[in-house]
Design a protein around this nucleic acid. Structure first.
Lengths: 240, 240, 240, 240
DNA sequence: AATGAATGAGAGTTCATTCAT
DNA sequence: TATGAATGAACTCTCATTCAT
């Protein structure tokens, strides 16, 4: 990508107030490798998600990681390598939006009766839409979507993990259906449908900035709730 | 030879076989401004969507447009300007995925009875999922999502148009509900829910490349179909 | 010179309010060659003196001359050629600061008695320092000094003319000395000394902008006057 | 081959034999920042004064400084910045032609009797006209006059320093007048008049190249000497 | 003659990467 | 390991000049 476009590039409107979460260490401190790595990846995530891969500079990352540019290269062979490591790590400590899946799966597993279905749904929604208020999460997702295709091999593990989670949840849901806890429906045919509206919400967040989607998001969530309730409540429950 | 040539960058896996649809003119031919502009924007769309804004080079665009790099600047002030023009044009001839909305709206309006509901849905699905086979469309969408936030002002008209179409369709759907053609449901509360699965499908396309999602897409479409049928069919019809 | 520095170059502080004296013709008008040439050279003088040779663009000149860039090339082979033509013309209608010399020479020749010496000096000073209020003159002189060395061959005729004028005036002055009208002094040894302070004044104008030199210029002129009176007045007159 | 290569431009006739004083270091050597800066500014002064700001290329400067073009940017933000730094430095180690003023001031202060006035004057002239043989000095002065107006803020400190020196000398001269060492005259009214002929000489150097002015310069210097002697020698001395 | 799109060779600037310290 | 100056290959943008119209 261009190297000196930067200046001209509209720095992402997503960009918040430059979080700078990483406390600036007194520099030149020698740190255990692992700790340094983490610092770097934290910094890199921020920078990549703020600027995109192309517009991110090693200097930016280094500065945020509290070290010099050259120092980065003691830990990562290249910018590309940093990027991939960031992507890799996305799914380890934090399952990104796959976690929704997992969360919902647990919730589903836990549900017992009609009241708990509603509350399980609410919990799921709270978790899912709550994340959209987390600027970091939104950026990360955006990074994944925007730049992921650039590094398909880095994407692979993510895809695998995602698939696995989906499989698990699908199994749980199917089980819940056959036990009568959930109604058989399009949503139970394919659990992704359960998450689709959240993804839509996230995309709107990218494209429209936090405030202006506020209302839409609320309505979307309400409709989503209705959808889940209507589609998932077992016949008996729904009819009663 | 060099240490950090562009080549290093993983050129987007999306990248097809370099279409080069634009027949290379005999160069130096003077063209009407409008025609040139179109050529340039065609070329730029390809290049931007293949590489992303950052990695796209004016040279690439120029070459694809069959002219010299410098020549571009007779028509656009900067790379940024080309990018914005591309985004602008996205919504003129072709309403991007908003058009799905419009299409579906017409379909909805047209529906009369149960059989036509099913076929309207099928038409909608055909159009919506059919687009995902169009590499160009997918790239464009990806570009919009990935790089749009970089140029929020260029995004504004798109947002407006999109909002307008949604409004229209929402009105049509609400009307269809009160006339009994559609059942009142979460999906009619908020038409976006109708499209959400398609967006999910599109995102999967970005992240996983055409072939590997093939199966998932088919299943998703089927589930989507079931969802629409179950949720939208008027009670009487559904119960009969 | 650099071609795209321009934007960054501090546009000369000398630059006044963009004179634009040349009335913008309705374009595309076909004009007699001579008239066009003049228009072009007028425009070119302005642009060159405002920006310097390097930063001046053919577009600028063309626009100010009320024609298209390409049109220039019907009259001049190159930017260099325009520049030289400008320099050439400097000495035809207007002898630049050589004219001061000439003017003063005539004045000298005319002087008869003590009162007319004083008034001749005052006339000379008025003419010489008056010019410094003429932004155009100052710019032209600056252009000559700043860019002249770039085109020594274009400078040659100017130098010849200048030398001739000096010779003439030197002769007149020497004559005036032997006839007792002027006292023999350093200034009559070398007429350039008579003009030196004006040149100093002009240089200050370049380096300090009109207003801030105002006072200095006035004082310089007064001192210059005293110098001329004291040095040139014949003994008898001075002693009386 | 090309149509408008740099080569076309008449490279300044001032241009000497490309001094290249700076011995080419073995490259890539890491130097203390200050030393590098100096190397760069030395190189830049040469290049700017040879070609003028516009025609100077960063490549040229880099090459003369014995480093790569990109390396310059570790020390200076832009070409403009280099230029300003060059101008700044002009007045630090070496007060440019202001120093003449200072030198002369000291000389004046030192003068005691008629013999020392003559020798003080000769020293002053030697210093002043001697500089004109220094190609570097002449170029620097030309640069200041030609390109200074382009960067008025860089000029300001120079102006201040210059003004201060003038003030000092004016005071010294006025003092010398009241103590009877110098005669009250136009030249003591305004010390600039003392220097004016030197400036004229310098300008001639720009416009006419070293050899052809040789004679003129000698004559000018002689006349200048006479002027100073006649004007500055105290009455008694002059009359005796 | 005139127009202005088109060309094409830079020029300034950026930045991933290297390497002397 | 860490630092940051240095490298060098892009890359964007400019502009003198040409040329189809």
């Amino acid at each position: 990508m261009s190297k000196h476009t930067r200046t001209r590039e509209t720095r992402g409107s997503i960009t918040g107030p430059a979080p700078d979460a990483t406390a600036r260490q007194p520099r030149n401190r020698r740190l255990p490798a692992q700790e340094r790595q983490d610092q770097i990846l934290d910094a890199a995530l921020l920078v990549f998600s703020e600027r995109g891969f192309g517009a991110a500079r090693m200097d930016d990352i280094a500065e945020r990681a509290g070290m010099s540019k050259g120092g980065l290269y003691a830990h990562f062979r290249s910018k590309e390598a940093v990027f991939e490591a960031v992507l890799q790590r996305m799914l380890m400590p934090d399952l990104l939006f796959s976690e929704q899946v997992a969360g919902s799966a647990e919730a589903d597993v836990a549900l017992q009766d009609s009241s708990s279905l509603a509350s399980a749904i609410d919990e799921f929604l709270e978790r899912a839409y709550g994340r959209l208020k987390d600027e970091r999460f939104v950026r990360t997702l955006h990074l994944l979507i925007a730049e992921g295709p650039r590094a398909p091999h880095a994407l692979k593990p993510w895809n695998l993990r995602h698939a696995e989670l989906l499989r698990k949840q699908q199994a749980a849901v199917t089980q819940a259906v056959s036990s009568g806890q959930l109604r058989d429906s399009a949503l139970t045919d394919m659990v992704q449908l359960i998450h689709a509206p959240v993804l839509l919400a996230a995309i709107l967040r990218f494209l429209q900035d936090a405030e202006s989607v506020q209302v839409t998001l609320a309505k979307l969530r309400a409709a989503h709730r209705r959808l889940l309730l209507e589609s998932l409540a077992p016949k008996a429950v729904a009819d009663s």
